[in-house]
Amino acid sequence: METPKVFESEYRFCLILWRHEPINSAELARLCKEELGWSRTTTYTVIKRLQNRGVVQNVNATVSSLYSKEDIQVAQMDEMMEKTFEGSVPAFLAAFARRQELSQEDLDEILRILKKK
């Protein structure tokens, strides 16, 4: 199944959720107010929206995610790869490497991920 699309604001929300899940929705709204400056209704709206898209579930006012942080990151990466680098991993790596210094650990991690695939 295709990982659903998550927008940037929603991703910020998900970051909070992943840290605290499972979490009571009222508590989640309080945290969003604190960290994102969202009103309660906005938080509920976003929960509802992500619920509809199948990203999170809300059972008895307890919210938890259906996708891991990595899933979402990979999906976002895929989308960016497709959009910006026309699906070419080398092009992406070249751009990525030029932009920041890669440590040996970073390179090892990258190789590990690539091999796993």
Partner: peptide
């Protein structure tokens, strides 16, 4: 509405 606060009045 879904804008997130960066700092002060900057979203």
């Amino acid at each position: 509405r879904t804008a997130t606060k960066l700092r002060d009045n900057i979203w």
